[in-house]
Design a binder for these strands. Structure first.
Length: 593
RNA sequence: GGCCCUGUAGCUCAGCUGGAUAGAGCGAGAGUCUUCUAAACUCUAGGUCCUGCGUUCGAGUCGCAGCAGGGUCACCA
């Protein structure tokens, strides 16, 4: 039982005994006392003054006395206006550090592998071009949310649904046949996904030329786009693909193979991975049986032309097409099918989709239709809808060449990390390999933290020119704090024998301990909100409080052995918390830097 | 135009279910390394929380209206 439970329970009793107000402990909200007031936890008494028929001051005094009398861990209290501030005894905090300080996994729960899985889909790239900054946000979020839910005890399965078929891939294939001269990743030294992306661009270039010529000969733009020979050919190639044409399939497999090798490399550098990878070429026909089921159930209907629809006007939306009149399916149909497949594959209770907010409408509809089809788990489908990454001059546009390539960005970050590190010159004694690993950790730490610290639902700005900072509220700042702590703990000889005694805490220590104390609640709240940002901000608060403590409190230099042992223990505790929170963000922490 | 999201310091962002005098980082200014890693710490300056009305003992937070920005309204995925 934490201090907060003790307080709310006793306050509940106080309200009942003093004023006959029935208020369950769970409904009593305590907040952290503001920095500029004395105390640790604050009860706002305004809500009770009416029923108590007393002044806020009086109510505060009475509840305060009541609680102090019954709880040893409450040292004292003060009332300012309607705010009752409880002061928690140092003995409680010391006891807490003693109990939890050595827990390497502090703050995280063991995932319950017996429980029904939560399936998180993220990444889901197209295979016609390399990953860019937008994908990076997706991948980091998907990975981190998975880590977060697992840290909160969920049985998480990460899946990727690769869009490996369709007209866009045919465009790359066609362009490569036409203009590629048999180029391969090996012959060019290009990463496979970049090579294929190059031909996607190549297609676009020639295609535009054709459209332009057609328009000059008097064809309307819309018609020209359809009639352009390249487009016709791409369409034809898609058709041959669907018919299983062996030549087309072979080419498709070859080029997709290049792309996967490229993606794997990028995933590896980003430190993300999956429990299962789905391919649309295997799943794109799914969903049709569901449509039939829906027709039988009467929740879907067929129009005269034979097309099948779902009427969502009752839910304030439009009608949604599910089968074209020729019987072919659309994106939504496929997604209905894959949702069911995934539910069945894993026995999943919850499906989470990490997909950009431009698809809010799609997922709203998906959820509604799954519900109409009678799936009880539909209501637990969750669209983790994240905002766009914008550049200083607006959205990324491939045609304007403003797309920030994922691999290039990581390269840049590593270069910057190396420069910064060399400037500081603290790592000369590390081996070349250790140094390289350090630069990598710092580069990714900076990048990941920068992206994950902002609320996923919001659009964010990325300024490539200013690049990403390594000072202040950044990943490296937290990594640096960790490295400093590790240095202390190593010097102190790792395990310190310390039992809580009657140490007197200073304000800096108390603040650090209070932040540590709130970690389990923070992780729970972050998991409920699907927000790695809350974890990132927590890690920053903790690191900042620690640095402030470190600055003016002697640790190894402390002459009182008992006090010294306690502080080393506190340091190690902070290190665990930092490592665990950073781990949730997918960020490694260095032993030295 | 309908629906959805966003609007907090010069810039990038926090601010949980409404609670005290709205917080960080960067940038600007001033300090702190003979002392456990200065990628750090301390101090200063910087605000009409987009605007208005409302609900409330109390609104950055909730409701309505407006303004601004973005997204989306495909037999594309």
């Amino acid at each position: 039982m934490t201090i907060i439970d003790s307080l709310t329970q006793t306050i509940s009793l106080a309200l009942n005994d003093l004023y006959a107000i029935g208020q369950a402990p769970a409904d009593i909200v305590l907040q952290d006392t503001r920095r500029d007031f004395k105390g640790d936890y604050t009860l706002v008494v305004f809500p009770y003054v009416k029923q108590a028929r007393k002044s806020p001051e009086a109510v505060g005094q009475e509840i305060g006395s009541y609680v102090k009398e019954r709880l040893d861990v409450v040292d004292g209290f003060n009332v300012i206006k309607g705010f009752l501030n409880f002061e928690v005894a140092d003995s409680y905090w010391l006891q807490f550090v003693c109990e939890k300080g050595k827990d390497e996994r502090y703050g995280t729960k063991q995932p319950d592998l017996e429980s029904s899985p939560v399936v998180v889909e993220y990444s889901s790239p197209n295979t016609n071009k390399p990953l860019h900054l937008g994908h990076i946000r997706n991948n980091l979020l998907g990975w981190s949310v998975s880590q977060l839910l697992a840290a909160n005890g969920a049985n998480v399965k990460k899946v990727n649904l690769v869009n490996d078929r369709g007209i866009h891939i045919c465009k790359s294939m066609l362009a490569w046949l036409r203009y590629g001269n048999g180029e391969t990743p090996e012959s060019t030294g290009l990463k496979g996904d970049h090579l294929v992306g190059k031909y996607y661009v190549e297609f676009d270039k020639h295609y535009k030329e054709e459209v332009k010529q057609l328009m000059e000969s008097g064809v309307e733009e819309e018609q020209a786009k359809k009639d352009a020979p390249l487009m016709q050919e791409a369409q034809q190639m898609l058709k041959r693909w669907e018919e299983g044409d062996s030549e087309v399939r072979a080419l498709w497999e070859k080029m997709n193979g290049w792309v996967y090798a490229g993606f794997d490399e990028t995933y590896r550098r980003l430190g993300v991975g999956f429990d299962k990878v789905y391919y649309e070429s295997n799943t794109y026909l799914l969903g049709k049986e569901l449509v039939q089921k829906g027709l039988d159930m009467g929740v879907l209907f067929r129009k005269e032309d034979g097309s099948v629809w779902c009427d969502l006007t009752g839910d304030g939306l439009d009608q949604k097409l599910l089968l074209r009149k020729d019987g072919t399916s659309v994106y939504m149909t496929q997604d209905l099918g894959t949702a069911l497949l995934r539910h069945n594959d894993f026995g999943a209770e919850q499906l989470i989709y990490v997909v950009g907010n431009e698809q809010d409408y799609h997922f709203k509809v998906l959820k509604l239709i799954l519900g109409k089809l009678g799936f009880s788990w539909a209501e637990k489908v969750y669209h983790l809808s994240y905002g766009m990454v914008e550049l200083p001059n607006g959205k990324m546009k491939s045609r304007e060449g403003t797309v920030v390539d994922a691999d290039d960005l990581i390269d840049e970050m590593e270069k910057t990390a190396e420069e910064m590190s060399r400037e500081h010159g603290k790592n000369d004694e590390l081996s070349a390999e250790e140094q390289r690993h350090l630069y990598y950790i710092l580069a990714l730490g900076a990048l990941k933290y920068f992206i994950l610290k902002v609320d996923p639902t919001k659009n964010m700005l990325f300024n490539p020119a200013e690049s990403i900072d390594f000072n202040g509220n950044t990943g490296p700042f937290i990594q640096y704090t960790y490295a400093r702590i590790r240095s202390i703990v190593r010097k102190a000889g790792e395990s310190q024998d310390w039992k809580s005694g009657d140490e007197k805490l200073n304000d800096k220590e108390r603040l650090v301990i209070k932040i540590l104390h709130s970690l389990p609640d923070t992780i729970e709240a972050a998991a409920e909100a699907y927000s790695p940002a809350m974890v990132a901000n927590y890690a920053y608060d903790l690191a900042k409080a620690f640095n402030s403590f470190y600055q003016d409190t002697p640790i190894l230099r402390e002459t009182d052995p008992q006090l010294k042992a306690f502080r080393v223990c506190l340091c190690a505790f902070v290190a665990h918390a930092l490592r665990n929170t950073m781990n949730i963000l997918g960020i490694e922490v260095p032993e030295r830097m």
